[in-house]
Structure formats: structure tokens, C-alpha cells
Design a binder for these strands. Structure first.
Lengths: 339, 339
DNA sequence: ATGAAAGCGCTAACAG
DNA sequence: CTGTTAGCGCTTTCAT
């Protein structure tokens, strides 16, 4: 990066044509004589020319870059977010779509008010053409900030507050239904649930779908104990369930972490999983596989969702679509050993 | 991003000063009258001005961006790389350093010859100021390609081929020593190892350090079975070990995945971990915690390493240092239940 | 089909 | 301390 890089001008001189012509062949614009194209191409090769990104962006007003924003994670928490395979799957899906279009994701954090401002600024500088937002918390103010800064934006998961923003999501309700149906199919007679914190709409949907499934089978409404999406809260909820409903033989936990906590308590109390009590989780996180026993769980097609998210953004940037769109994906039951 | 964004010119007009002056206050250059600074700041606020990144980059020749390149992962494999918590920890460390300097990481893949070319091109366009490379495979050609394109580069882990490139790494040999010492301290009499594939120098170093530790304690050289860093290979190796050395009571596996495989086989064959056979892994991956029993393992300070990597790159970009540097980190024994 | 010329928005000498 | 003046390298009318 030290010696002066060759510019369009250099190539033009070398090929004996004008800058404009070289620019045309570089960008594959038609209306260029094939012979001259060759001429230019050779000159490019000889000079080792590569277009300068900044100069191009300055005039095209395109960064060929999208921001992948993890929003809502507190500082200390940030490391965990990245270490979670879920994040990796999102990255993988996004990259899968972008790379074919020679676009690249820039990683951004927004874990505080200041962080959100910085992110918005970053976007307003034109550093990226649009934003892909993964919010950790419900009620994240970032999407609306982006919206009012007129930054093309697509979210992973439905926003807490309704707003005209595109997003992708999974059909949580259907997922809960899958879990309920599985427990029913196993012949469980006394089914219960460990639910999500009430402020998470997705969690409520999972529970609703689960209840639907039982209702469709003419079962009475199941006992539900609220959890907090953590291992400990799952364990605590299971303890409560066991005390108040010792006859329980099937449990749906609204995420894998709580399912794992439940399994631990079950084992400690001498109940076998799945023989005595069947357990179904949600998310198919890495825990699901390493848990003992491996968890039967509901899987979100995260990679597909992420790549669709990138696609929606791309279309929005290209101006092909302007009205917000939402795409909902079907979850899938992954049967392992716990149910 | 639709309506015309205000430019320096607009702010200058609004404040009744020249563009240069506005530029100076925006960039915090001294030599500006405090009163005028205020004037300008207000004008900036009124107009809602944000500097245009491309225009600035064009003249400063700085992208304020570094590329974080995952190199050597085959396409299908790519998803796994990202899903591995290790990658998340790298990202976390890198971001930790960069964010304070308002720089951002762009994610790049290079899984084939074509991919590597694209990456080099990307860098030559000036899209990023330097490259942070995490190679999955030994003998990755990318670092040298970057080197000859004069792209400032820092690697995670020592390169396969020796080259004048900066890198950070952990003292693998010391790590192996830690593992050996732990097994010794537990009082194991018959210690064995499941080693890494021979083409990975880091794996060989781990084994060497492990052997050193035993030698220092006047033990005879331990039996070693080669693994391939996978769960299955760890299980297979353990099976072999048990057959050929049924008296074994302590095992060092060169990574956690193989350690987990070993634990599974041990349990299946009715050996208790750690009572009958103690097991030490390497990496402190997420598996280590979810494994049954939780793995005693050797931890690399990945976040620190990654942020140091970013720092070395930054210094190199700033021109403060020109000769390649390497920083080696001390590994740490994480004691859990398996040994 | 090609060239000439006008910027894109910003920074950085250089004057004053 | 502030303003003037050149560009940075590229795309894109507008002529030709």
C-alpha cells in the first residue's frame, strides 16, 4: 500500500484511450468496441490496476457494504453474543447472500444510547448501504432511529414496537405447536410448560402455539411456570412444576437453556428423561446437542432467515422495493432423545 | 439516505466561515478560535451534518476499517467456523480494540484460490486499512499473497511457512505442560495422550510440552494415539488406548472435541471420569462446559490475543512500527471436573 | 462508440 | 488563526 497505486489515468495512458473508456470496460458497460476492450484489459493487466473504492463510492454513493448490527447487548454481554452459535449462523447466512454480489458485512455493536448514536452516524456517513439488525432485547429503540435517519433496514425478528420496517422471523406459534404435538404423540398424559418472560412476544407466541396444540387434542390447559430464558430459571421452574404437579410426564421449555436446566433437575430428582418425563426445547442451540440427553427441540432456519434478510435489504437498497416486507419461516422439529 | 445530505459547504455557509475551518473543527484540529468553534458546532447541529466517509477516505487514504478474514474454510465448512464460539471470541476481542478507535471490522472469507484473489483485490482497493487473518488450515497461502500486495497484515497463530509477518499466538508447548502437570498432580500413574494431526505444528507443540512435563517428573514417555481433532477421532483413539493400555488412568487430548469423545468412550466402558481416568482437554471451547463431566482444559486467552492482533495491525497501519512483531500469550489451566 | 469536462465531498498545503 | 486553492480517483452527462 506504499508505492503509488495505478489509477484509471495510468491505464488510459497505457492503452491510449480516455479515462471514460477505461471506466466503461471496468464496469462492463456496453458500447465499447471489442478491440478496444481487449486493449484496455491488457493495459489493466500490465499496470496491475485496481479501482479505488473510495473514489467510486464518492460518485456512485454506494459503499458495497452492509452493516450487521448486534443491538442491545450490554458490554460484558457482548462477548457472549458473539460466542453464541446463533450469531455465527446469522453471519453465515448473511455472507452466503452477500458474497455472490461482492458485498461485505461490517460488524457493529450498539449496546447503549451512545452506541446507537454512533451506529446511526456511521450509517449516515454512507459507510454502509443499509443495516441488518439483530436485537437482543425487546423494545430496542435502534430500528426506529435508523428508520427516521432513512437508513434502509431489515430486522431479524419482529420489532417490539410496530413500525414500518422489514423483517424476517420464524412462526413461533407454529413452533410451539410442533413441540406440543410431539409430546402428545409420545403419549404424554400430564403436559406442562416453562414459559418465556412475558415481555418477549416471541416467547408468548411459542406458548400460545403450544397451548393450541393441546387444546386441539382436547386436553385441559397445561400448567405453566414462567422462566427467564436462563439455565437457572429453567431449573427453578422445573422444581416448582415437580412440586406442584408431581404427575408431570411431558415438558415444553420455551428455549433450550431452560430445557437443559429442567433436565438437570429431573435427573437429580431421579426422573429419567425421556422415559419418565419427556422434554422439548426451542432454538436448537449448541446446547441441544451437548445436553444429556440430547434435546428434542424446535429449530429456526437461521441461515435461510439471515440470507433472506440480506436479500430484502439488497432489494430495498436497489430501490426495487420500497414498502416494508416481512418473511416468515416455518420452524422444524428436531427429534433427538429427550422427547 | 434519499434527500441530499448536508455537506461541509452547507455548514460553512450556515456558519459564515470557510470549508477549511469547518473541516478543522470537525476533525478536532487545534488552531481554531473557540468562538468560531462554537459557531461551527451550532451550524453543524442545525444542518444535521455528518461527514461523508468516501470523500474523506479518498483524500486521507484511510478506510477506518480493517478486514477480519477467515481463511481456508471450505464452503460447507464456513458455517461451522462462524458457529464456533472461538470465532465469536476473536470477533469480540477485535471489536474491543477497534471500537474505541472508531474503526470497524469487515468480515471476509477466503476458502478457495478465487476467494483469496478476491480478498487481495478487496484490500488493494483500499477498502480496508489492513488485514487480520485467522487461518483454519496450516500452510495457508493467503498471508504471503497479502504480504506481497503490501497489505498490512497480522495473523492469529504462527504461519505454516515462515514469513516476515506479525502474529499473535499462545504458547502451545506451555499449555501441553500445564495439562501434563495437572495429571501428574492428581497422582495419575499411567498417563497417555491423544495427539493432533501431525501437520498442525501447534498440535505438535502441545504434545511436546506434555511430554516435557512427564519427562521432568521422570516418567517414561507416554503412549500416544493420533487423533484428527474431531469427536469421533477422539473416541476411536480412546478405544485404542483402552485396548492397548487398559491400565491408563490419565489422558491428555490435544483439543476439547477429542477429549469429549474420549469421555464418552470411557463412560461406555464403565470407567468413571475422573475417578478412574482423568481427562484434560485443550481450548476451553464451549464443549468443555457442557461436556459430562465438565472438562478440565487449557484455555487460550483468545479475546486478549485478538485485541492485541488488532493493536499490532493498528500500529503497523499508523506506520509506528514496520518490522513484523509477534506476541506470545500464556495459556491457563481451567480446572473443572474431568481432572 | 469515444472523448472532454464537470464534479462527488473532503483534506491539506499554502498564503495571508 | 482563517481562507483559498488544489486535487484525491472515479463516474457520468454531453458533445462529437
Amino acid at each position: 500500500m506504499s508505492r503509488q497505486a495505478p489509477t484509471l489515468e495510468d491505464v488510459a495512458r497505457e492503452a491510449g484511450v480516455s479515462r471514460a473508456t477505461v471506466s466503461r470496460v471496468v464496469n462492463g458497460v456496453r458500447n465499447v468496441d471489442p478491440d478496444i476492450q481487449d486493449l484496455v484489459r491488457h493495459a489493466i493487466e500490465r499496470t496491475g490496476y485496481t479501482p479505488n473504492r473510495a473514489a467510486r463510492s464518492l460518485v456512485t454513493r454506494r459503499a458495497e457494504t452492509v452493516a450487521l448490527i448486534v443491538s442491545g447487548a450490554k458490554d460484558a454481554f457482548a462477548a457472549r453474543v458473539f460466542a453464541d452459535p446463533f450469531f455465527g449462523r446469522v453471519v453465515s447466512g448473511v455472507v452466503g447472500y452477500l458474497r455472490a454480489r461482492s458485498m461485505h458485512p461490517v460488524l457493529l455493536f450498539a449496546e447503549s444510547e451512545a452506541g446507537r448514536k454512533q451506529v446511526v452516524d456511521y450509517m449516515r456517513q454512507g459507510s454502509a448501504d443499509g443495516a441488518l439488525v439483530v436485537s437482543i432485547l425487546a423494545d430496542d429503540p435502534l430500528p426506529e432511529m435508523l428508520l427516521s435517519a432513512k437508513v434502509p433496514t431489515v430486522l431479524f425478528a419482529r420489532p417490539g414496537r410496530t413500525a414500518p420496517i422489514s423483517y424476517v422471523d420464524v412462526d413461533h406459534r407454529a413452533g410451539g405447536g410442533l413441540a406440543g404435538a410431539r409430546l402428545l404423540a409420545r403419549g404424554c398424559r400430564h403436559i406442562a410448560a416453562i414459559s418465556a418472560p412475558p415481555e418477549l412476544p416471541a416467547g408468548q407466541d411459542r406458548l400460545a402455539g403450544f397451548r393450541d396444540a393441546l387444546a386441539r387434542a382436547d386436553r385441559c390447559p397445561p400448567p405453566v411456570v414462567e422462566g427467564a430464558f436462563t439455565l437457572d430459571s429453567g431449573a427453578a421452574a422445573m422444581t416448582t412444576l415437580l412440586r406442584e404437579h408431581p404427575e408431570v410426564d411431558g415438558v415444553f421449555a420455551a428455549n433450550d437453556l431452560m430445557a437443559q436446566g429442567a433436565c438437570q433437575v429431573l435427573r437429580e430428582q431421579g426422573r429419567r428423561v425421556p422415559e419418565d418425563v419427556a422434554v422439548v426445547g426451542f432454538d436448537d442451540s449448541s446446547i441441544a446437542m451437548t445436553c444429556r440427553p440430547p434435546l428434542t427441540t424446535v429449530r429456526q432456519p437461521v441461515e435461510d432467515m439471515a440470507s433472506t434478510m440480506a436479500k430484502l435489504l439488497h432489494e430495498q437498497v436497489e430501490g426495487a422495493r420500497t414498502e416494508p416486507r416481512t418473511v416468515i419461516f416455518e420452524p422444524e422439529l428436531v427429534v433427538r432423545e429427550s422427547a
